[in-house]
Simulated assay, not measured.
Amino acid sequence: MMQRMQLSSTSAMFYGISHLQWPTTDLERSVALWRDAIGLIEARRGEGYVDLDSGNVLLRLMQVPTIESAVSLRLSVQDVGKAYEALLAAGAAARYAPMRTPELEEMACVSDANGHAIVLWRALSEDEWGFVPELPKQGEWQPDAEELLKRLLAHVPALFRMLVRRKTTRVIEMMAAEAKSPVTRELVIRGYITSSAKATRFRLIAPLKAEGINPDDYKEDFDFEG
């Protein structure tokens, strides 16, 4: 108990990271890169430094006579390729061109005039993975039922698909447990419908029809109040 109290007291002394320091031998050139090319907003300027607002913490560009050690920052970007070309056009040097990683990210890297690394990255959407993730299933599934759900889930926008996959799989397995049955195509269809919010179930009609399933046969499930 005493140790927990001490840890809690210590953590209360700290409020989070306020600045990241970026040493530079040419302050105005660094400002041009980070403010004008990358788009950070100048927040404060003082003797030998400029603070730029990154949205989370301030990036402090600090004038120094020499660079003692290079630093590296990762920038989250919408389009790695366009950001990479924009920084090259602004005078940065290429380290490596856009590439996809085993961590399901797209990355590229450039160096500024002082040799510091700026890593550009974004998470790949599920549609870009090149494979269909396994269902988070625990019970027994008939093979055709599993494949059907994977095809139906492909119609869900990639941004929401992981959450929908988890919820739908859970609902289907609960229905299978109640029926004391392995997961069948019929249970997949019913669970796919009832796991969705009633107000948005109309969006399921087209995916079901694409699989040769008549939504009218599942009116009770479409009307189900979950």
Rank of each mutant, 00 (worst) to 15 (best):
G130R: 10
M107G: 00
N114I: 00
R100N: 12
L120G: 01
E128P: 08
A113M: 03
E105F: 09
D112V: 01
C109P: 00
A113C: 01
P133Q: 03
V110N: 02
C109Q: 10
Y96W: 11
E106P: 01
V132F: 01
E103S: 08
V132C: 07
R95M: 09
A97R: 03
M99P: 01
E128C: 09
I118Q: 02
S111T: 15
A108K: 02
A97K: 02
E126F: 02
W121Q: 15
A123E: 15
E134T: 02
W121C: 06
W121R: 09
L124R: 11
E134P: 01
A108L: 04
Y96I: 04
A113T: 01
V110M: 05
L120W: 02
E134S: 05
G115R: 07
P133Y: 00
P98S: 10
D112L: 04
P133R: 00
V110Y: 02
R95N: 12
E134G: 02
H116Q: 06
Y96Q: 09
A97V: 08
R122D: 06
R100K: 14
A117K: 15
A113V: 00
A123T: 14
V119G: 09
V119Q: 08
L104T: 08
C109V: 05
L120A: 04
E128M: 15
I118W: 02
T101Y: 08
T101Q: 05
S125A: 13
M99V: 12
I118F: 04
E134Q: 07
L124N: 14
S111F: 15
L104M: 15
A97P: 07
R95F: 10
E103Q: 11
H116R: 01
V132E: 14
L124E: 13
V110F: 03
R122I: 12
L104F: 13
A117V: 06
I118M: 11
E103W: 09
F131D: 04
T101L: 10
G130C: 14
W121H: 11
D127Y: 05
S111E: 11
G115D: 10
D127K: 10
H116F: 00
H116G: 04
E126T: 02
Y96L: 06
S111L: 14
E128H: 08
E128I: 10
M99G: 05
D112W: 05
A97L: 04
W121V: 04
M99S: 13
P133E: 08
V119S: 08
D127F: 02
P98M: 06
A123N: 15
A108R: 02
R95S: 11
R100S: 04
T101I: 06
T101P: 04
V132T: 15
E126H: 05
V132Q: 08
P102N: 07
H116C: 01
P133K: 00
W121S: 13
A97T: 07
A97C: 05
F131W: 09
